[in-house]
Design a protein around this nucleic acid. Structure first.
Length: 633
RNA sequence: GCCGAGGUAGCACAGUGGUAGUGCAGCUGAUUCGUAAUCAGCAGGUCGUGGGUUCAAAUCCCAUCCUCGGCUCCA
């Protein structure tokens, strides 16, 4: 029976009210609360037949928050239409962080406009207009929006397959919308408009550029403030800002956009990372390689890069009549080394690793500090093996990757398995075997992962690992990809136990992805407060007055001889000034040398985080530092 | 590439047509001082670059390079 008693309905409404619901979930559908109040045809359709569960939806749930933000975006569109009657509305969805609405509007919105729009929105919220859902025929809707001059809405409606569409009316503002919405505008407690941006209609640069306004909304002011604080924290940790403050790297107009200059402080961090990386690769039975930065065009023809990667490659340069190309990837070189001699199955798996610098053309608008550059060094490796060895190799690589990430303080990550896309090379058999091998490796490791169907690279399935930094932001660094393409294209083989020729499988993998990007992520993850082993300067020795210089110099020499990155600050400034100076540069430890220290063997060490530790001798301090460096914590 | 905002001393910023400024950093001198800024003096800029308008341009116009926020894609 689709009929509900008056009593039952009232109970439900009461329950929703008590739960402070902004919408309801009926079965697996989200509906307006008003849908439960009225008894229209559509309502009974919505409620369906028989007994479906009816759950309150609150702003506390992700879905509820999405509905809430979507309603806020409607209110914003309403405000914009009142202030800018000529603006045409397009779409305005909720996003993970908030919402946006795109308008077709001649003059872009200014920051002042945002303030005006916010004020207008507050008025609309105060009016507490109900959101009224109306279902009309497509033809009626088209006519309605045509009359209003809302051509984008007409375009959207024409593409909707149903015979009817729903409209939401709130005050004088009507918008095409699937819904649901909060019951009335007064339900919005806390929102903020954040920024404006250009955005193409339907995301295609062939279409007109629209004006987008981003905003966000939360259940209450406290949560909104927390979010705004988070944005502040993100700004504070911006690797470009910290990179300047700590003198880590720079980008120079005259050298070129997207090309990184590693300053001494950044370079020593990179050197430390690279040393760690090489040592661990040797331990893990990889062979290290070096390969050139350019190669003949023919190589890139054969590898297929000219077919599928041309947009990201620089124009060739002619050298003695032959064209050479700056390398966008390292794989063909590694294949060439594989091919430099006949290979036997007994050598397998062959693991080649290189910190290979590649150059890729990126459009000027997408460059971003260290995160998106035009020249970068990949921590690349290629594993050549038999198809039955894939699973073991993936297991190894997974262990290795997680170990490396953990060393840099990344303990949380999300893992994605991408399967065969529509356009692909290689046999279906190989795809199946290798996808199964990846899956099995993940389940053996009991790693949680999500499947991205059809998101694999055309040459094979892959596993991507996205780390979460200290602000819980996701960064994709590691990738493990099976490759059927290169072995075929370069026709590489090995001699099997059966004395026949076979084609090996290649696995590409990068743990950190690109050193530049990884460095950027590290800077933001640590907020510039690097652990001791990575800190450019590990120890600063400060003198209280000139008569302590000789003694302090002795200590500097001792620590330097023992591999500690140490400086002596012997200037004639006051001690407070020197401490501040070290503190601003985030030096992990400082030692003050005054009369006390010159007379006793005791050393008092000031930690970057504040607080002192006392050591009985310089050797004791040295041991402590060495141990902390070794622990990489 | 497209839309918008920017580019002034090493850094952070002020300066709307009339002799380029402030703070920090730097250098010099004084001070020799015990846990986040001692004092004084000095020096530092063809105002991103190239054109144009004007008696006069950091300032107005055009072009160009770069940076930033997005769009698209990704490491």
């Amino acid at each position: 029976m689709g009929q509900q008693t008056e009593q039952g309905q009232e109970d439900i409404l009461k329950r929703l009210k008590q739960a402070k619901a902004i919408a309801a979930k009926v079965g697996d559908r989200y509906v307006d609360i008003s849908a439960l109040e009225t008894k229209s045809q559509e309502t009974s359709d919505t409620l369906g037949q028989g007994q479906q569960t009816i759950e309150p939806v609150t702003v506390e749930s992700p879905e509820g928050l999405g509905i809430y933000r979507h309603s806020t975006s409607h209110i914003m569109a309403h405000a914009v239409k009142e202030l800018f009657p000529d603006a045409k509305v397009t779409i305005g969805p909720a996003t993970e962080e908030g919402f946006y609405y795109d308008f077709d509007q001649e003059t872009p919105f200014t920051p002042d406009d945002l303030v005006k729009i916010e004020k207008k929105m507050i008025q609309i919220i105060k009016k507490n207009n109900p959101f009224v859902r109306k279902v009309v025929s497509k033809a009626d809707a088209i006519q309605l929006f045509k009359d209003m001059g809302e051509t984008y809405k007409v375009e959207i409606i024409e593409e909707i397959e149903d015979d009817v569409v729903s409209l939401y009316e709130e005050g004088e503002f009507v918008d095409l919308c699937r819904g649901p919405h909060v019951p009335s505008t007064g339900r919005i407690n806390a929102f903020k408009l954040l920024k404006t941006a250009g955005a193409y209609w339907r995301g295609s640069e062939k279409n007109k550029m629209l004006q987008r306004i981003y905003g966000t909304a939360f259940a209450n002011e406290t949560q909104l403030k927390d979010y705004l604080n988070f944005l502040e924290e993100v700004k504070k940790r911006d690797h470009r800002k910290i990179g300047k403050e700590l003198d880590l790297f720079s980008i120079n107009d005259e050298i070129g956009a997207g090309l990184i200059l590693w300053h001494p402080n950044g370079a020593i961090i990179r050197k430390t990372i690279e040393d760690f990386w090489r040592d661990e690769h040797i331990k893990a039975n990889y062979s290290l390689l070096y390969t050139p930065h350019i190669a003949k065009l023919n190589l890139w023809q054969r590898s297929g890069h000219l077919d599928f990667y041309k947009e990201n490659m620089y124009a060739p340069m002619e050298i003695e009549g032959a064209d050479y190309e700056l390398k966008p990837m390292n794989c063909p070189f590694h294949v060439a080394i594989y091919n430099s001699s006949l290979r036997s199955y007994r050598e397998f798996p062959i693991r080649y690793a290189e910190l290979g610098t590649v150059y890729r053309y990126e459009r000027s608008g997408v460059l971003h500090g260290l995160m998106r550059v035009r020249g970068f060094t990949q921590d690349d490796a290629h594993i050549f093996c038999r198809i039955d060895q894939i699973e073991d190799e993936i297991l190894n690589v997974l262990d290795f990757t997680l170990f490396v990430l953990k060393t840099f303080g990344f303990e949380q990550y999300d893992i994605y398995l991408s399967t065969r896309p529509e356009k692909y090379v290689g046999s279906l058999d190989n795809w199946e075997i290798s996808t199964n091998a990846l899956t099995k490796a993940l389940t053996t490791k009991e790693l949680k992962y999500e499947v991205d169907p059809g998101e694999g690279v055309f040459y094979g399935p892959k596993i991507d690992i996205k780390v979460k930094d200290s602000l819980k932001r996701q960064w994709q660094c590691s990738t493990i990809q099976v490759d059927f393409n290169n072995p075929e294209r370069f026709d590489i083989t090995y001699r099997g136990a059966d004395d026949k020729e076979h084609m090996p499988i290649m696995i590409h993998r990068a743990l950190m992805g690109s050193l530049e990007r990884f460095f950027g992520v590290l800077i933001e993850h640590y907020g510039g407060v690097f652990p001791l082993w990575l800190s450019p300067l590990q120890l600063s020795i400060l003198t209280v007055s000139d008569r302590h210089i000789a003694f302090a110099q002795e200590l500097v020499d001792l620590f330097k001889k023992n591999g500690i990155r140490v400086e002596g600050d012997f200037g004639n400034e006051k001690i407070g000034y020197k401490i501040r100076h070290a503190s601003m540069r985030k030096v992990p430890y400082t030692v003050l040398i005054g009369d006390k220290e010159a007379q006793t063997a005791t050393l008092t060490v000031r930690k970057r985080s504040g607080g002192n530790i006392v050591y009985n001798s310089r050797e004791e301090l040295l041991d402590f530092l060495k141990q902390e460096i070794n622990n990489k914590t």
